[in-house]
Nucleic acid binder design. Sequence first.
DNA 1: CGCGGGTTTGAGCCTACTCAACAGATGTGG
DNA 2: CCACATCTGTTGAGTAGGCTCAAACCCGCG
Lengths: 252, 252
Amino acid sequence: MERQSHSAFLSRLSRLDLTIPEREALEDLERQPEERRGRALVFDAERPDDRIAIMRSGWSAVRVRTDPGRTTITQIYMAGDVIGFSDLGVGTLPHETTMQTSGSVTLLSRTKLFALIITHPRLFETLLSLASIDTVVLLDRMHAITRFTAEDRLQHFLLSLKAKIDHCSLQRSDRILLPFSQKEIGDALGLTEIYVNRLVRRFEKSGELTRSRPYVRLNTRKAWEERLNFRNRYSEFDENLLKPVVSGRHGS
Amino acid sequence: MERQSHSAFLSRLSRLDLTIPEREALEDLERQPEERRGRALVFDAERPDDRIAIMRSGWSAVRVRTDPGRTTITQIYMAGDVIGFSDLGVGTLPHETTMQTSGSVTLLSRTKLFALIITHPRLFETLLSLASIDTVVLLDRMHAITRFTAEDRLQHFLLSLKAKIDHCSLQRSDRILLPFSQKEIGDALGLTEIYVNRLVRRFEKSGELTRSRPYVRLNTRKAWEERLNFRNRYSEFDENLLKPVVSGRHGS
DNA sequence: CGCGGGTTTGAGCCTACTCAACAGATGTGG
DNA sequence: CCACATCTGTTGAGTAGGCTCAAACCCGCG
């Protein structure tokens, strides 16, 4: 219930030189965050909803489901993410979003988001850019799913998750939070829970991975990254911020 | 070389009630289209580029590639599509975009696109919404890839392509253009060319599909749609335009 | 006429699946 | 605080869907 010291959203954008009015606008967007327990709905599929969400703390996940039992986890969001940019064109939400851990989110109408276009276009651009990285990362994962072996897929997934955590939390450790059951990892990779388990155990036996729920440590991260030719899209974005590509362009 | 009668882009948005200045702004964006032959590059991967593209005619495709031989086709674009919304956050382009057929594209800098935010925010919203549908469709395909059998994946792919053609070209026929080799279809679905071939032949023998290069006819489209619980995201978008959800909101 | 890209088919194999059973956690209500 | 239910993890045994390898065919094109 107690108020967080400050927005994860803001700290994530702290690498940018925001103006005072921009900071205020951002803080204004995040008024009235709602607490949510793990597994609680953020957005229900099939329901008309014209809101977007800002993750303030905790993780959430987007699922595509045809029958129960056939589920795909498409996106994973954490503190500082904006959820819903890719749903702007649809009236009723296409997919289901639920909290993956407990945390808090701010819901706001698209109108309010779009209002930002006019009042703070540079801010809007930045949010858009931020959201677009997740799409690029998704395409990378799609490639992994279609063309990698199960073993490589799992490695890629863990690397990708670590990269995102690094970007969002500004902390760096090969020991990462992994608040997913093996079934859910399977849903993100197109594998069965049983096979995911075999892979996990295999990595554990070979010493590449150490588990201590709900954390895992990637003991041979570098080796994995090299073998898979892993691209960290988030760090590439961060580098761009230093020599601003997106945000600095208006001035030129 | 001769100038097309008018923009596919505009005709696609014709369902919207655009103001005269908005129409002019759109036409201005599409000045100086460049002709491109099939297979010609639109965007090279690994190269810094801050432009986006508007497809004026023809088709193009986005590929993710680790080694040559391991390729994934992620997006397929056709007349009236804007390419590059999901690359806004990255400085060097993450993926390769090439023409799938010959056609023409207009390239413009992100600056120009972002300028639209200020001069015609409603227009920008609409473009964004349009682009977001393709992302939603991609998630659907991702679900198909991870959780459907190869046979169902191919059906889903063809249905999805037909839905997009209907939306972009405003024409409706179960006979659709399919300018892809079987290898490329495999790249879009995570299958080998050999297996795609077996599936195609199977459908042909059962009478579900008729080929006449480069067209295919989906003889049992309805049956496929029902069996797969297929959702046409594009038609859902069109319906929304009639009772405007996105574009009409500013007025209220 | 030969070449190359795409298509077609066969044979055999292997990765990841299904089915089944049990062990461990976690939680919940009486 | 225990008994029971349920969800997650673990392992084995057997299977099959889609793969690899190999070779031929078709067709347009230089």
